[in-house]
Design a protein around this nucleic acid. Structure first.
Lengths: 221, 221
DNA sequence: AAATCCCTTACGGAAATCTGTAAGGGATTC
DNA sequence: GAATCCCTTACAGATTTCCGTAAGGGATTT
């Protein structure tokens, strides 16, 4: 089993629960817990530089803000930073997010090895994940259906930019002006109109209020 | 210290962290953990009926859905059910919510005794909360400023109902019709117009898109 | 080269939003 | 009782949204 584990999780109770479980279950020699991404990354760097690298990172995705100034503010950033230094370290994400759209890129872009969704069985799942990952397999909590991410309507950055502007209270005329000023094309009011209308159909929205409300609730804009 | 504690928390890792901490810190004789509100409530009822009631309930607010059919689906409902049977049991809420607007009513309406906000120090805070509550005082995590809830713009149920309708894509005309059908007054298109316009000013919103976006992001609708 | 497809843009009309004015009614104040 | 305040409602005009039609241009297909 893994010998040297780094745990990044900002909730004290969750953190303790995981540490206790792993120590009881696996008799891990060396498990280091951190409440901040930055501190976790520092530990990782030092260990790597000293030739005694961690062989597993377990990390949450969202970390609370705090009075401490932070450079890395999310698990995603931590993973990216860690991966840029060590392409081989195994990474398991332990988070409450259950949206395949957000989880999928973690595997494809950041090459994580396992995803455990916090819930009523997540400690057991974390242990399963560790066993799978140890044998160079991936693990995803069974309640997550990554395939459903394929059914999802695609929106490109342009669409999202316009929707954010709308949510910020700009009219289509104002958005058109802004795009022209910033030399972003296409930028006619008519095209913006069409883009939004297409999204109405795709998301089953009755009007702009409805569309914006849906997308914000889904965490897409 | 408390002798008989009931813990309702659906995340396995958090649950375990709390149980371990309390057992180490206080040598509680009897701490019962549950992952579901319904199961927690059943335990509570049985204990109460047998004349051996719990003297502290620690509960989360949000519980994940599951395949198991659930009657109580949130910590709020659990608290309400418990309070209706036992007005004396001490209740400490342990949740990640940090919005005073949502926390305040728990004290005023449901007479909870303590509120711990999940975070980097929340196990320690939970222990402090237990000591305070034990002495019939209340406890709130220091980072929560309940006073700031007073500065907040008030919206009554009527306002929120209309805003939710708008977010669901209804036009003002449709909302007016619906109110008339349900014999809710006032219900003229004009009054609805005025209500929304007032909220534009209060929330600094440029138009309805903007207002809805702001309020959903704030978790108010 | 012609046909086709897709994207951008313009335009127009119906509906909805936004804003201001004004009238009526109930409650409170003087 | 008169004056005042606040809430509800009606109405009207300017702006914006929504949706359909249509023209032009670039890329691909036939």
């Amino acid at each position: 089993m893994f010998k040297k584990i780094l745990l990044a999780e900002d909730f004290q109770d969750t953190n303790k629960g995981i540490v206790d479980a792993l120590e009881n279950r696996f008799q891990i020699e060396n498990i280091q817990e951190e409440l901040y991404c930055d501190k976790a990354f520092n530990r990782f760097k030092v260990a790597h530089a000293q030739g005694e690298p961690y062989d597993l990172l377990i990390t949450d995705l969202s970390f609370k803000e705090s009075h401490v100034e932070r450079r890395l503010t999310s698990g995603k950033e931590l993973i990216q930073a860690v991966r840029s230094i060590d392409p081989d370290i195994k990474i398991i994400v332990n988070s409450m997010i259950d949206n395949p759209i957000e989880i999928n890129p973690l595997f494809t872009e950041f090459k994580i090895n396992g995803y455990v969704c916090k819930g009523r069985n997540s400690l057991n799942e974390l242990i399963m994940a560790m066993e799978e990952v140890r044998q160079n397999r991936t693990f995803v909590s069974p309640q997550i259906n990554l395939n459903s991410a394929n059914n999802v309507i695609e929106m490109d950055k342009y669409d999202i930019m316009i929707l954010k502007d709308l949510a910020d209270g700009l009219t289509k005329k104002e958005i058109s002006k802004r795009l022209k000023k910033n030399k972003i094309s296409p930028n006619s009011e008519s095209t913006i109109d069409k883009k939004i209308s297409r999204l109405f159909d795709e998301f089953g929205a009755k009007n702009t209020h409805h569309l914006i409300a849906k997308l914000i609730k889904q965490g897409r804009i």
